[in-house]
Design a binder for these strands. Structure first.
Lengths: 218, 218
DNA sequence: GTATATCTTGGTCATATGACCAAACAAGAG
DNA sequence: CTCTTGTTTGGTCATATGACCAAGATATAC
C-alpha cells in the first residue's frame, strides 16, 4: 500500500462513516484526500472498489487485533472479556474501517461480498472457539444457546457505535466490562453478583478472576 | 392519512430498509407505489419529508405498542421481558419504519431531527421507568449502571435486525427471551441459572416467574 | 348538473454524479 | 542527459437525480 492509498483509504473510512457510502461522492473523497477525481480513479477504478478495499483491510486487521488480545489471556472468560474490550475499542476509537464493515456492507455486491463474508466467518469462529472452550471448562450454564450469547454480546457492542459518540462518559473498556459483567453474571439480584454479596456459601467463585486489572466499570 | 399516503409510506419503508435512504430514488418510490413522480411530489414535497413522516409515525406506533405490552404485565421483570419481545417483534416482523428509524436517522436534518430525538427520549424513558421500578423492588443487583443494562438489551435487539433475516431458526420471541434470560441471570454457570440448577437453597427464586408462557428458547 | 377542491399526468430543468481519458508532469535508472 | 515508468492534471461525457409545474382528469359538494 502506498502512502497516497493509505490517505485515500483513511478519508474514505471517515466519510463513509460520517455520511454513508451512497451519500459520499467521489469528488468529496478526492478533495478530502487532497487530490483530483482523476487521481482517485487512477488508484481505485470505482467507488465500490474503494469500499471493498477498506472493508477487507479493516476486517483483517480487526481479526488480528482480537486474536492477539485473546492469546495473552489465560482463562476462557478472560479471553471473552478481553475480546469484547478489543472489539469495542476498535469500533469506537480505532480507524473507521470496522464501523464501515458493520454499517455499509449492504453496498457491497458480487464476489467481494462473499470474500468479506468469509472474513466475518473467521471472526465469528474466534468467538465460537472461546465459547466452546468456556463450555468445555464447565463455565457456561446448561441449556443456553451459544449463538444467542454471541449475538447478545456482539450485538450490544456493535450497536454501541450508535450512542457512544454522544455519551463519552465511559471509556470503551468500561462499556465492554459492564456488558460482560451483566451478561456473564446477570443484572438480577439473584445472579452471582447479588448472590455473592448476600452469602459466602460459594467462596470458590471470585469476581476478581474476571476483573483482575482494577478498571471494572461502576 | 389517506390510503395513497399509506401506500407510499409502506413502499418507502420497504425500499429505505432494503437499499437505504440515499440509494433510493424518488422514481423508484413512485414506481413501487404505482404512481408517477409528480404524484409523489404532490403528497411529499421532498424525499426527506417522506423519510421524516415515516420515522415519526413508526416511532409513535412503536411507543404505543411497547407501552401496551408493558401495561398488561405485573412485575418489573415481566414488563422488561415483554417490552423486549415487543421491541424485537416490531423490528423484525412489524413494518419497516422502526428499522428505518434505527438505521437511517443520519439522513434526517434540521427540526425533524430534534422531533425524532424527543420521540426516542420518550421510548427510552419507558425503559428507564421499568429499570428503576426493578431497582425499587430490589430486583437489580447493586453497583450496576442502569444505562448499561439498557444499552446492552436494546443494543442486542437492535442489532438483531442485521442477522435475523438470514437466521430464521428462531422466532423473535425466542430471541428476546434468550437475551433476557442471559442478561438477567448470566451465562455463567455461577449465575442464577446455574446456581439454581445446582442447589435448591433459594426456592423462592422461580425462573417460571419470568418464563411463564412456555415458549422460552432452548 | 355545475362548481369547487383534490389529485394525476407527463414532462421539464438545473444540477450532481460516476466513470473515464489524453496530455502533461515527475522521478528514478542507465 | 534520456528513456521509461509511474502519477497527476484538468477536463469531458452520458446518465441519474431531486424538485417542480401547467394542464388535464376525477371526485366531491351543493
Amino acid at each position: 500500500m502506498t502512502k497516497q492509498e493509505g490517505i485515500v483509504l483513511g478519508v474514505a473510512g471517515r466519510l463513509f462513516r460520517e455520511k454513508g457510502f451512497a451519500a459520499t461522492t467521489v469528488r468529496e473523497l478526492a478533495t478530502a484526500a487532497g487530490m483530483l477525481p482523476g487521481s482517485l480513479h487512477y488508484r481505485f477504478p470505482t467507488k465500490e472498489s474503494l469500499l471493498v478495499e477498506l472493508m477487507e483491510r479493516g476486517m483483517m486487521q480487526a481479526i488480528e487485533r482480537v486474536r492477539a488480545a485473546i492469546e495473552v489471556e489465560d482463562t476462557p472468560l478472560n479471553k471473552m472479556r478481553s475480546a469484547l474490550r478489543e472489539h469495542l475499542s476498535i469500533l469506537v476509537e480505532g480507524d473507521d474501517a470496522i464501523y464501515v464493515n458493520l454499517y455499509e456492507f449492504r453496498s457491497v455486491t458480487g464476489a467481494a461480498r462473499a470474500r468479506i463474508l468469509r472474513l466475518r466467518d473467521a471472526y465469528e469462529a474466534l468467538w465460537d472457539g472461546m465459547l466452546h472452550a468456556a463450555v468445555g471448562a464447565g463455565l457456561i450454564r446448561a441449556g443456553l444457546d451459544l449463538r444467542m450469547v454471541r449475538f447478545l454480546l456482539l450485538g450490544a457492542v456493535n450497536w454501541s457505535a450508535q450512542w457512544y459518540e454522544e455519551n463519552q462518559n465511559y471509556t470503551p473498556g468500561e462499556v465492554a466490562d459492564a456488558f460482560f459483567s451483566i451478561s456473564a453474571f446477570g443484572f438480577c439480584n439473584d445472579g452471582v453478583g447479588g448472590l455473592l454479596a448476600q452469602s459466602a456459601e460459594r467462596p470458590e467463585v471470585q469476581l476478581t478472576d474476571v476483573f483482575d486489572d482494577g478498571d471494572r466499570s461502576g
